[in-house]
Design a protein around this nucleic acid. Structure first.
Lengths: 214, 214
DNA sequence: TGTACATCAGTGAACGCGCGTTCACTGATGTAC
DNA sequence: TGTACATCAGTGAACGCGCGTTCACTGATGTAC
């Protein structure tokens, strides 16, 4: 069956590694945060012996950085998919919020990890997450720059706008996480509020000092 | 000197309690988060023996709730002071952001604690913080309702606007914390960006569906 | 293809350490008379 | 005011526990010939 040899040992090692990443994410959901997880908890959940941990990571921090990587890879993937799809232009804001809702639903553990560690975790993780979010805001700024009015804006102002939108979306995602866990019926209300907030932001766009300073 | 007896024992107990609260805040600055602090660390920093902890709190969670209380008390106090001061109406946004900067500077440990625990901590603390922030947004909504255009708005829409502003301010405060700790020279840039973001939000306000549905 | 050796993911025992919590205590402060 | 007893914030020894990390190991997989 296996056409390519794909060395059995490497394959199994990768499986164990992913089992550990998944174990950590699962535990974060129940515990307070990643930094309060113990190495032994993670290996126990992953079904291996504590000492096997060191075959994969130097310490928990290295595992944490791997998780940040994994989480943002899934985010960028969703963004790429969204960009590839048609832009409705009509209900663009509602469509964007819808994408956010779907994303939070299907990547709950990833988002939860990011939310928990963004300010509450080890400083290396915080820095890694902050950099990724900045990168994300910059990508959004470029996307925004393709719209009718906004293509006249200076890059700096586009960053300010995209930062505002990312803040709003991140805050909404965090509310959705809590709602999803505790009061699912609050979700539509959160969606409505988020849509209105983005709409309010966009109302001001045409009034922004309209000429670029080139 | 002491006109009132103010029982010596109670007074000293209060001092110890405050020493523990302060010790916890100080440790949060160096550690990852409150939930990764140990009871022994806190008592060590406060200069008492571990078992004395139980004279004041049942466990670390109870101490955490006391900290949430203390932090938001200082926030409400600042708000009250700001409300009591003159409203410049001219550079209102710049003045508000200035108040935020001053607040972050003089209550660094409080803000840091809130930021760390807002999503990263024990669920009781997260709930307590979320409730306090909601209350805070509601107060702001009432303040906003006194302004010329906004006094026509429905309460629901005022909440949406105040939520947006609080989000933006909280995000700014979190950036200021990082800057203050690592790159002080970034502060003016953060201030400028925050002012612009609030200004952009307010630009849209007059265009919002202007009639109240009563 | 078959054999002999190398690699290395995962094992299991052992270690010293800081943890939260218990308990009986001490001695300064508070109260009753 | 002075005395005799009660209160209770803080002490110090002790406990059992899970932790991160070390080490020598096992045995399946990989490699060379």
């Amino acid at each position: 069956m296996a056409v390519v040899p794909s060395r059995v040992r490497d394959e199994r090692k990768l499986q164990t590694r992913q089992a550990m990443l998944h174990a950590a994410l699962t535990l974060v959901e129940n515990e307070h945060s990643f930094s309060s997880l113990s190495l032994r908890e993670v290996t126990r959940e992953a079904g291996i012996v504590p000492t096997a941990f060191y075959r994969h990571f130097r310490d928990m921090e290295e595992l944490g950085l791997a998780l940040v990587d994994e989480c943002f890879r899934s985010l960028h993937q969703s963004m790429r998919a969204a960009r590839a799809g048609a832009l409705p232009t009509e209900h663009l804001i509602a469509a964007s919020v819808k994408i956010l809702v779907d994303y939070v639903r299907s990547n709950r553990l990833h988002i939860l990890f990011i939310a928990r560690e963004r300010f509450g975790g080890m400083s290396m993780l915080r820095n890694a997450i902050r950099n990724e979010l900045r990168l994300f805001a910059s990508e959004l700024a470029m996307d925004l720059g393709r719209f009718p009015v906004l293509n006249q804006w200076r890059a700096e102002d586009l960053q300010i706008l995209s930062g505002l939108i990312v803040n709003t979306m991140v805050a909404a995602a965090e509310q959705m996480l809590e709602a999803q866990a505790q009061r699912e019926e609050e979700m539509p209300e959160i969606v409505r509020r988020t849509e209105k907030q983005v709409r309010l932001i966009m109302l001001g766009v045409p009034l922004w000092k309209p000429k670029p300073r080139a």
